[in-house]
């Protein structure tokens, strides 16, 4: 039981020590990673990249109807 409990603790300790003793370049890239992830997932995804079909249609039936119309309504797209 002790061994079972100590395994996750050892993993946590491993990561803790790793981050704690990280080199200067390591710290710099982690700052960049965090800023980048915030920009990508909080700013870009939320404000600039909504899922078009999820935003405009409530269910898959409506979405498939819409796409079916998109695919069949036009004689040719370059007109």
């Amino acid at each position: 039981m002790n061994n079972f409990l100590s395994a996750p603790a050892r993993v946590i300790r491993f990561y803790y020590d790793g981050f704690r003793n990280m080199s200067l370049w390591g710290r710099k890239v982690w700052i960049i990673i965090i800023i980048k992830l915030i920009i990508i997932f909080v700013v870009l995804k939320v404000f600039f990249f909504p899922d078009f079909l999820r935003k405009n249609y409530n269910n898959d039936k409506q979405r498939s109807e819409y796409i079916l119309n998109q695919l069949t309504n036009s004689p040719d797209i370059y007109d």
Partner: peptide, 19 residues
Amino acid sequence: AIGVATGIILEFEFGTNWS
């Protein structure tokens, strides 16, 4: 580290621009 997650943006573009 710098490159990680830059590909995720392509998936965002699929959903928004290329639905």
